[in-house]
Every structure is written in C-alpha cells, then in structure tokens.
Design a binder for these strands. Sequence first.
DNA 1: TTGTACGCGTTATCAT
DNA 2: ATGATAACGCGTACAA
Lengths: 338, 338
Amino acid sequence: MKSQRPQITLDDVATRAGVTTMTISRYFRTPEKVSPATRDKIAAAIDQLGYVADSTAARLAGKTRSLLAVITPSLALPYVPEIIEGVSEVADRADAALMLHETRFDLTLQEQRIEAAISWRPDGIIFIGDTISDRSRRQIAAAQIPFVEAWAQSDHPVGIDVGLSHSDLARDMTLRLIGAGYKTIGFAVRRMGYRVEAERLKGYQQAMTAHGRAPQVFECGDQATSFQSGAQLLTMARAATPAPDALFFAGDLLAAGALFEAQRQGLRVPQDIAICGFGDYPISREIVPSLTTVALPTRALGRRAAHLCLPQAPQPSPPEPCTSSFVERQSARLAPVP
Amino acid sequence: MKSQRPQITLDDVATRAGVTTMTISRYFRTPEKVSPATRDKIAAAIDQLGYVADSTAARLAGKTRSLLAVITPSLALPYVPEIIEGVSEVADRADAALMLHETRFDLTLQEQRIEAAISWRPDGIIFIGDTISDRSRRQIAAAQIPFVEAWAQSDHPVGIDVGLSHSDLARDMTLRLIGAGYKTIGFAVRRMGYRVEAERLKGYQQAMTAHGRAPQVFECGDQATSFQSGAQLLTMARAATPAPDALFFAGDLLAAGALFEAQRQGLRVPQDIAICGFGDYPISREIVPSLTTVALPTRALGRRAAHLCLPQAPQPSPPEPCTSSFVERQSARLAPVP
DNA sequence: TTGTACGCGTTATCAT
DNA sequence: ATGATAACGCGTACAA
C-alpha cells in the first residue's frame, strides 16, 4: 500500500484487472455488458485497492452523479431540519448528494451562498427563505437550474413554487377561533421583517375584518429568544384594553414561551386566556397544556421539492398528500371546518 | 440570451472580452496580474453573461474550491444542527462548500453515505455519530481524507477526535448530585444501543460505586418519542423501591418529558423528586421548572472540527474555549465543584 | 501582461 | 465484450 499515492483512479483498477478504464467504468454503470469473468477480476481489484470512484470527475464528464443544494437562513428554525430531512430522503433514493448553504438571515451572504450553490451546478436548488435579491434572480435564470421555493409562497416566484400560503392558513385559523366563540382575538408576533410572518399577520387581519372585528396586534423586538419573546407578548396582551380572551401567536415557539409564562404567573390556559400557535413543533404536543396550532407538512414539502429537482427519483404511488391542518389541543378551542 | 446553451464557460467570457481563458482564470485567482483595462472588459463580460465559475471543474483541475462533508444520523437530534452551524461558520470563512449526509441510524446506510462522502473527495469529513464499521474504517484510511469525530470520544478513533467524554461528564454530574445531598439517585435512559448513552450510564455507575451506592437504572424502549419515554421513565422510577429522590436522565428531552409528566401528575419538582438532564437544549432553560443539566459546547465543537479540516480558515485568536459545564437550574440542586 | 498546451478522473461515442 | 479517443471546464507550468 503506497502511502503518498495522490489518488487511486480508474486507471489503477484497470491496470490491476488487466483491462482498460472503459471496462471499469462499464462495470459500474452497465455491469451486464461486462463478461462475468472480467467482472470478478475487476471486483477483486477494486476491493484490494479500496477504490472509490471520484464523483467530481464523474459529474464533469457525464451527468452521472446527482447533486442537490439546499439554501436556508439557519438550521435553528425547527421546521428547517424537517424540510431538509424530507429532501434528504428523496436524495438518498436517487443517489444524490446534498449540499447545504446557510445564509444567517443576511441578504449579502445569501447572494454569496446562492452563487456558491450555482457554481456546483446542482440538479436543483431548494430554497427555504424569504426575499431573493434581483442579482440572485438573474443568476438563477442564467444558470438554468431548477429553483424551488419550498417554504413560503412567493409573490414573484423565481422558479417552481411548492411553498405554503401562510396568509391563507392564518386566516383560516383565525376564522376557527372566531367560530369557537372567542370575542377578542389578538395576534402576537416578533418584529423580524420576515415575509412569512407578515403573511400570517395579513391572514389574521383579513379574517378579523371580514367579521367586522378590529384587529389587535402585539409586536415585540427580536433581541430575545422566541420563548422569551412569547412571554413578553403574553404580558403585553394581558395589559391591553380590552384584554384578549384568545391570543394567536405567529409561531409555536412564541406560543410555548407564553404558556411557560402563564404558568409562572399562575394564569390558567385556556380559561383565563386561550393560546394558539403556528407550526406544530414537536414540543407543542407535549407541553402542558398542549398547544392548539397549525400543522405544516414540512417533511412532505421537502420531499416534494426534491422530486421536482430529481425526476428520476422513484415516485411514491399514490402521490403523497401535502396538506396543512388545524390541530385542536388543550390551549384553545377550535370551531370545525366552516 | 440563447436559451438552450449548455453552459456558460470561461471560453465564452474570454471570447466576449477579447482575451483567452487563461486571462479570465487569472482575473479570478490573481487579479493583480491582469491589466486594469482588460480587468474592466472581463468584469463587463462576466456580468453580461451572468457567468458563474464551475466549482466541479475547478476542483478537478486544481484544488481551488474547498469542500467539507458532514455525516450525521439525523437532523432531528437537537445538538446536530448546532454542531453543523459551527461547521458552517468556519466553512463560510474558508469559502468551503458543505455536503450533508444522513444515515438515519442505519449502519448499512451509514456505510453508503461514508462512501458517498469520500467519492466527492472533500477536504475533510466530520462525523457525528456512533459506531463505524470496519469496511468504512478501511475506506477512510485508504482515502487519506481527514476524518473528524465530533460528538463522542471514540475508543478506536478512525481519525482525529474532538468529541466529548460523555462518561466523564455524567460521572461528574452524578458526583454533584451526590454532593448536593440526594440520597437515592436513579439513572433513566432509553434502550437505544448508542455508545454515548452507554457512556453516560457508565459515568453514572462509576460515581455511584465510588461512593458505595447501588446504581439504580431505569430503561424503556425506543418506540415512543423522547418526551413520551421521559414520562414513562418517571412513572417507572416513582414506582420503584426505594423511590429515587433524584433522577438523572440521559438526555434533556427525556427529562423535559418527565417534567411535563410530573406536572400532569401533580408532582412537585424538585421537592417530590429532583430531575436532571444532559445536553442543555434550548427548551431546558424555558421549561417550568427550568432544567438542571449538562451544557455541551456544540457550536464550538463544530467549529473546531471544521478548523481541523480547513487549515486555511482564519483561526480565532485567542483560541476559543470548548468546554462543557454543569448548569444548576430549578429542577435539581447541584453541589459546587468538588 | 498574455497565450499555449496539457492534465485532472471520468464518461460517451464509435470502432473492433 | 472490449478498446481507442475525444470531450467535460478549469488550473497551471511554461513559453512568448
């Protein structure tokens, strides 16, 4: 075993097996076109040399290996790993590699990461995020790479759009709270400037206005953790006039923070105030009281996005559903579908 | 804009700028060796064509682009995204791309993913996981690629090892519980066959034995969620004789599940039973009562692992600390450092 | 300062 | 069934 050998290549295997590189390549790609005898020789050579084919070269030469890129602001948002797991499932089935790019909520970094993603010429780019700059839009268009927005529905889709309508979902959830008999329903959100949160707010406002009610929005800064912000928002809402009898949070983490705070303050949920979240994170069903919320098909979203980039991936049959739902738990009552 | 152009290459830019490919290449790699005049022409050509250099080809030709691979059982474990974020920070600074491979707790899949990672010839492979098969060990050795185990300390490290000693941490935590005056300290764990959990159990047993106490271990199956298992384990422990006055959970999620269950049962924590976790997840400081636990330097671990693979990445000065700590919160008292 | 020519490791095409 | 040869797009000696 020569130690400083730069790399074991197809040539090495070929020499050892007494054939040419082309035969080795065929051994991998169309084994049935290689005679059983040489097949054994090749297998032995590969094993002895510990050969692993170079995907970089393979991809440059033909488009043999598949590659997917995921771009996301952060992995700390609970739904992001879930979407990525969906992507990864499909990628695995299609033997595709997965590249991950974080933008850290920074638009400049996002431009860089999008360009980096394009530079690897993946079979598709799956975008979890918010706004996309014009510069990036141009590059994406020029690159001719499928670009899938997998989280929020886009007003100006760059490519394919499998995202959710966060405004419709928030509107419908508000309608169900209204239908359940809550009189003054507030909406609580962190001031973060994200499109999805603005969408959710919009949906809430639509529903309230449609029923002739005055929207009552509580906002706080984005310095603290989501849990802390939730606590703060609950306190704000309790101090308002009129004090809401139900509070719809723009995210489950905020709502969970509010539940913890309610517990600290000795408030009863939902008797003193009903609380409702958005996202259905794992914690939401375990917390006491369990959280009424909007469940999002995150994994399915990821799978769907990946399928759009990898047409060769085995499709499930029947095609799997990818729908959101409203989950009534202990923290708030919900009216049935209108 | 020709639409079905296969790809925009260096050649296209060169032609448009009236120079050869070499000059464009230099423009990117050593701009100072290109005259300002042609520099402008090139910049214009790049912009007009929306050219993005092909990293695949670049990497095959020279080793211009950097690439890192992360292999993990899942993204659903709360510490995994944190470690990856650490990796990603450093990767960004070094202009390295990041590949992600999930093994889904399946050793066969893990072998495949490790081989896939190697096939892209990354500058390093960062492994978050447990056991590594012999076959994989051989491939890793043959590939000559830095292989960093970033989560658990390995008995038989394959490559570099920046992991934590989960047994030492569990031992010290147990010692602190003993020092705090708890009489019967139980250990609760899911039967999952992971090395890190076995390590934690071992540390607990060491500490108990050292103080002449009989270890009292509670185990449950791995079918349910962590939260549900935690609830189950709490119930088991309460039914035991003697009933422990403190329960050390092998993970924070289990402990959180126990706290929720205690709340449902009307048990007071820590008066009726003290509860202690391992991992310091975000939820642990927010839950009521807040959870006493072992805090792990996950992000720093990721950064450190990445630095080992990317020597060119700008190093922080002074070198950042990467140490665990014991966090006393409401759910259990802790003795100060022995 | 700029250009020529070859190599990186694999695959596709066309022969044999 | 197997081989020879030419790409794939870029980097780098070396030459001009």
